[in-house]
Design a protein around this nucleic acid. Structure first.
Lengths: 367, 367
DNA sequence: GATTCATTTCAGAACGTTCTAAAAGTGGTA
DNA sequence: TACCACTTTTAGAACGTTCTGAAATGAATC
C-alpha cells in the first residue's frame, strides 16, 4: 500500500540544555522527550489536568492553569499534534490542489484562502497537480493518510465525479475553485467565464475588430470551453459569424503565450486583435509579438483574462477581465469551514460576476 | 500554548458503500473505520502480520502477504500516518520556508527540491515567510508539532543563530538555500553572489558604462550585501571609484522594479545601465522604463540576476547571471537526506559557481 | 452532622500503528 | 525421538494526546 519503506531512519535523541531555566542548574542533561506527563509529574497533577489547562479549559482552576502554563513554557514543552490528531480525528490540515502555484492566478487565490483560513490555525498541504491525474490522485491519498480536515481543489483535467466523491466518502469535505466537475454537487466557486469572455470580446468587436485570434486554455476544461463559448456569444450577439481567425490551445503560462505569438506571426492573415484566455498567456503573447516589432495597443490589440496584479504593470498595461479570484478563494474557504462544521446547505455552482478592466493594450484595428 | 481551540468540530462518521465488494453484499453499512485489525480479523491473522505485510517485509510469507494486500485493497484500507508517525517519530514531512513562492526564483528551486525528495515519499509543508520573523517562527513551531523530519529554509531577514539552532536542538535537521545565517554551522547552499554580480557588472563596465544604477535587494540580507560588494568589486578591479550612480533597495518582485524605474526616471542624471539584483526586479524595471519610452538594449541597458526561465522570453531577452538555483535546490535536498540519516560531515558554506548569460537587454552606453 | 450542589481533579481507556521478544511451525540431521 | 536451525507468526506494550465517567473537595443548606 502507501507505506513503502523509504530508507529513512531518524532518531530524535534530543539534548536539551537547561542552563537557562530559572533554577539555573546549568547542566546539559539528556532529555527524555517532554510530554504532558513530564509537566504533570513535576507539578503533581494528572495529565488530564495539564491537557485541559493548556487548552484554556474553564474546568481547571485559574491558579492551576497558570502554574501549568508557566512550567510548560519553562521546560520547552512542544505540543504533539500527531498524538492529538490520532485521538481526535481532527488534523487541522487542509489540502489545496491547484494546477500550478507558479501561476499568479492561483498564487493570488491561495493568498486569499490563506487569509481566510489562517486564523483558524489550519496548516496547508499544497499540491501542483499540473493537470496530471496521477499526481492528483497520489496527493489525495496522502491527504487521507494525514486525515485532512478538508480539501479545496481546482480539479485536474479529466477528474471524474467518482474521484471527488471518494474523498467525501472518506469524511473529507471538498470545495472547488475556478473549475468544476460536471456530475457532482460539490460546491464550486467560479467566475462567469462565458460572461467575462463575452465582455472583453464585445469590447474588441465594438472597436471594429473582426479578425480576432483566441489563445490559451483547452476545451478539455470547463473553463476553456466556457471562455470560448463567451467569445462566440459576443459575435452572435452582433449577428456576426462566430469564428475565431485562429484558435490556439495552450497551457496558461507565459512561455506558451510566447510560442503562440510565433505561430500567429506565421499565419497567412494576421489578426488585428488577440484575445487571450489568461493574463499570463497574454503577457507572453505581447512579448512574442514585440520581438517581431508589433507593439500591443499600437499595432495590434491584446487582451487577457483574470486581472492578476501584473496586468496593471505590464508594458503596456493589459486590458483584462477581473474574475474576482480573491473573492473566489475567500468564499471557497468559508464554505469549506461551514462544511467541516456540518453545514450542507450549499448550491453546487456559485458564480462571482466578472468585470472588464480596460487598459492600454487595446486600440482600434490597424491595417 | 499552541493548542487553541479553533471552534472546529469534525466527526468522521464515514459511510462506506460496500456494494462493489466481491462478495456483492450490496448494502450500505455504517462502517467502523477500517484499520489494520479489520483486515487482521477478517483473515484470522494478527495486526503485526498485517502491518509487516503491507510494508513488504520479507518476514511474512509470500502467500500471506498477497492475501493481506488483496483484502486491504478490497475493503479500501487507508494507511493512518498519524498513528504510524506517533509510534515511529518519523513523519515524512519536510518543511520548506522561502520568502515568497510567487517569486519564480524560489518556485524553480522548490521544483528541484520536489524532484529530489519526491521519490522519498516526503510531503512538503510550505511557508512563505515574507521576511517576517513572526510568520517564520509560527511556522517552525507548527513543524515541530507535526514532528517534521527536516527543514529546508531560506531564512527570513533577521533570523538569529539561536532561531535555527532551536530547530536542530529539537532533533530536526536543517539545511539552507540561497541565504545563510552568520554564526551557525548549518550547511548552506548558495550562489556566489559576489562573483556573480562582479561578472555582470564587469560586463557593463567593459562596454563602457560608468553611470550605473543598482536596484533590488537590501543590505539586511547576506545576499543583498554580497551582490552589492560584487558590484563594487568590478569597479575596483578596473581602478575606478566604486560608486553606484543610484542605489535603490527593494523587495525582489516586479512591482518593486516597476516603482524603482519611476524613481530612476526622476533622477537628475540618468544612468546608462541598471544592474538589478534579481530578474523579477529587472523585468519590472524594463516595463517601467518602457512606459517612458526607454527600451532596454537600445536606449539603456538592464541586467538581472538568477536567470529564471522568464529571462529568456522577456522582451527583450534579459542579460542575467545563472546562479545555478536548480543545483542549489538539489544539493540542499540531498544534504538534508544525509543529515536525516545521521551524516554530519557537511561544510557550512557550499558555493555553486555563477555564469553570465549574455542576451539583448544590454548595449553600449547611449547618450 | 448529614445532605446537596458546584467546582475541580483524576484514573484509565482509547486512537491505530510499529516494534520487541518470544512462540510456533517446518524440515533436516543425528 | 531429540535436537537444531530457520522461517513465519504473534501478544502486547508503547507512542502522547483527549475524553468519559467518576471521585475528591469545598461551600452552602437543611
Amino acid at each position: 500500500m502507501r507505506c513503502k519503506n523509504t530508507g529513512f531512519s531518524f532518531f530524535a535523541g534530543n539534548v536539551i540544555n537547561k542552563s537557562q531555566s530559572a533554577t539555573g542548574v546549568g547542566r546539559a542533561i539528556l532529555a527524555e522527550r517532554i510530554t504532558l506527563s513530564t509537566i504533570a509529574d513535576k507539578l503533581g497533577v494528572s495529565t488530564a489536568t495539564v491537557s485541559l489547562a493548556l487548552r484554556d479549559s474553564p474546568l481547571v482552576a485559574e491558579a492551576t492553569r497558570e502554574r501549568i502554563k508557566e512550567q510548560a513554557r519553562e521546560i520547552g514543552y512542544i505540543y504533539n499534534r500527531r498524538a492529538a490528531s490520532l485521538r481526535t480525528s481532527r488534523s487541522d490540515i487542509v489540502g489545496v490542489l491547484v494546477r500550478d502555484i507558479v501561476n499568479p492566478f492561483f498564487a493570488e487565490i491561495l493568498r486569499s484562502i490563506e487569509k481566510e483560513l489562517g486564523d483558524k490555525r489550519q496548516t496547508f498541504l499544497l499540491c501542483n497537480h499540473d493537470d496530471n491525474l496521477e499526481i492528483q490522485e497520489n496527493f489525495i491519498a496522502t491527504l487521507m493518510q494525514f486525515g485532512a480536515d478538508g480539501v479545496i481543489m481546482s480539479p485536474s483535467v479529466g477528474t471524474t465525479p467518482q474521484d471527488v466523491e471518494r474523498i467525501e466518502k472518506n469524511g473529507i469535505p471538498v470545495t472547488m475553485i475556478a473549475r468544476t466537475v460536471e456530475g457532482t454537487d460539490i460546491p464550486s466557486f467560479i467566475g462567469d467565464d462565458l460572461k467575462g469572455m463575452e465582455l472583453v470580446t464585445s469590447h474588441l468587436l465594438d472597436l471594429g475588430h473582426r479578425d480576432i485570434a483566441i489563445v490559451g486554455g483547452t476545451t478539455l476544461t470547463s473553463t476553456g470551453r466556457a471562455r470560448r463559448a463567451g467569445f462566440e456569444a459576443a459575435f452572435k450577439k452582433l449577428g456576426l459569424p462566430a469564428k475565431a481567425l485562429i484558435d490556439i490551445e495552450t497551457p496558461y503560462d507565459k512561455s506558451s503565450g510566447y510560442e503562440a505569438a510565433k505561430t500567429i506571426l506565421k499565419a497567412e492573415k494576421l489578426p488585428t486583435a488577440v484575445a487571450c484566455c489568461s493574463d499570463t498567456v497574454a503577457i507572453g503573447v505581447m512579448n512574442g509579438l514585440r520581438e517581431a516589432g508589433l507593439i500591443a495597443g499600437k499595432d495590434i490589440s491584446v487582451t487577457g483574462y483574470d486581472d492578476i496584479e501584473e496586468a496593471r504593470i505590464a508594458a503596456p498595461p493589459l486590458t483584462s477581465v477581473s474574475d474576482g479570484h480573491n473573492e473566489i478563494g475567500r468564499q471557497a474557504a468559508q464554505a469549506l469551514i461551514a462544511k467541516i462544521n456540518g453545514d450542507t446547505s450549499f448550491s453546487s455552482i456559485n458564480v462571482v460576476p466578472p468585470e472588464l478592466r480596460s487598459r492600454s493594450s487595446v486600440c482600434p484595428p490597424q491595417s
